[in-house]
Computed example of a mutant assay.
Amino acid sequence: MIRAMRHIPFFLILLAAMWVVYPATAATPLSGTCVPVLEKLLPGQFHYCVAVHDWQKGDDAAGFSEAKYAARWGEKRAQFALGVDYFNGRRGIAIDKAQGLAWLTLAAERKDPYYAAILASARSQSTPQEQAQAQALVAKMLPSYGDAQVAQYAERRFQAQWWAIRDHVWDAMQGTGLDPWSKDTAVVIDGLGTVQPILALRKLQDAGDGYFQGWGHVTVGVTIPANSPLAQASRVSASTSQTDR
């Protein structure tokens, strides 16, 4: 459901805190809530978040299942986590260095320096036989987990879902007399809550760009007018953020 409204005083959900796009090097657990709307747009990111919560609760089996599903959507953090677990024998998984190397190889597909370094270290701690076994496993896993296949359909899904939300937002705004560029305009989006429409779409777009970083070009296109109050507020926020660092 999407419903347009005037929200005074306007309260904007802290979207960035909810779906902060972790760089590929982030190996620490996510915190907070797994944003429901991302299950439609970025299933890999959503289910990896669920996996981390399962692991934090001590449910290793559920976490493994969620991570495996996330990995099928090209979620590199999930592939990396599986690789480390197999290589070191963590979270109820028996040590299998060949399997670990295979997952780490997939995780490093996008040439992320951190993942590449971990992969190199793992290779240095494995035998030639284990490396050969890993190479054979990678060849079998690429159609189901490699970017050449999964990143493409993940990107198509993201774009289709993003445009569906955008169209619903535009339909909800029709005939309301509300300005979608105003900070005082809000919409209710299922799985997301009450948000400023243009900023929400932009945050979702940024989440997609971050998810496919190093592989794709997912930007779908909300342009915020430079002279709009929203753009001015964004610049002030960005400036404050830089000052705080």
Rank of each mutant, 00 (worst) to 15 (best):
D147Y: 03
E109S: 10
A120P: 00
Y115A: 14
Q99R: 09
S182Q: 10
A98T: 05
A160H: 13
A207R: 10
K111M: 10
A116T: 15
S124M: 13
Q135P: 03
A117K: 13
S144A: 12
L199H: 14
W162Q: 05
K183S: 10
T185M: 06
S124R: 15
Q205V: 03
D179C: 09
Y153K: 10
D179T: 05
L104N: 00
H168G: 15
T185N: 04
G191C: 05
D147S: 13
W170V: 14
L106Q: 04
A122M: 09
D167K: 11
I189D: 09
L119Q: 05
R166A: 13
Q99M: 14
K140I: 06
A186E: 05
T185A: 09
D112T: 07
D167Q: 14
G191S: 00
S124N: 14
P180I: 01
Q135M: 07
P197F: 01
W162E: 08
Y145E: 07
Q149G: 03
V195M: 00
T185V: 09
G177I: 03
Q135A: 13
V188R: 11
L178F: 14
W103C: 04
T176D: 08
L204G: 01
M173R: 08
K183G: 14
G191E: 09
D167P: 03
M141K: 04
L204D: 08
V195G: 03
G177F: 03
S126N: 04
L192R: 07
F158K: 11
E155S: 04
S124L: 11
D112W: 10
E130D: 12
